[in-house]
Every structure is written in structure tokens, then in C-alpha cells.
């Protein structure tokens, strides 16, 4: 029945591991913004790369290099 020492220590170690993970996730800011990630995860790489549409003079260059 001394196995109970092992069992208790294992269960407490597991509980503490999860607790530490929780603290870490809070620290990394996971709980600061609870909405945006729910939208972000639905995005894929929706880039439309249609060669014919890309004009020779990119208007964006004009704007940023002014």
C-alpha cells in the first residue's frame, strides 16, 4: 500500500505542472484578448495571386516611397 505515496506525489506533480502551464499562459498574454484569436484561426492563406491583375506600376510604391 506504500504505492499511495507514489500515487499522491504523481497526482500532485501533475496538478502542479498544469498550474505552472496556466501561470505561463496568463503571463504570455493569452487571457488579455479573448476575441481576436477566435477570428484569426479561421483565416487561411487567402492571397489571390493573379498575375494579369498586377499592374506594372504598383501604386503602393508611389505611396510609401514619396
Amino acid at each position: 500500500m506504500d504505492i499511495i505515496f507514489l500515487m499522491i506525489s504523481v497526482s500532485i506533480v501533475i496538478a502542479i505542472i498544469f498550474f505552472v502551464l496556466f501561470i505561463k499562459s496568463v503571463k504570455s498574454g493569452q487571457y488579455d484578448d479573448l476575441y481576436t484569436p477566435s477570428v484569426r484561426m479561421l483565416f487561411e492563406d487567402e492571397f489571390i495571386n493573379d498575375e494579369s491583375k498586377i499592374k506594372e506600376t504598383k501604386s503602393i510604391n508611389q505611396i510609401t516611397n514619396k
Binding site: 487567402e46 492571397f47 489571390i48 495571386n49 491583375k53 498586377i54 499592374k55 504598383k58 501604386s59 503602393i60 505611396i63
Partner: peptide, 17 residues
């Protein structure tokens, strides 16, 4: 129109989807 152009040229026209 210009915004549309910018986004379109940079593969970002999904913005409107």
C-alpha cells in the same frame, strides 16, 4: 478605388470576401 487597387495588387483582395 485606390485602396481597392492597392489591396488587389498585393494579393489582398480577399479583404472584400
Amino acid at each position: 478605388k485606390t485602396v481597392y487597387q492597392i489591396l488587389n495588387e498585393n494579393e489582398l483582395s480577399c479583404y472584400y470576401d
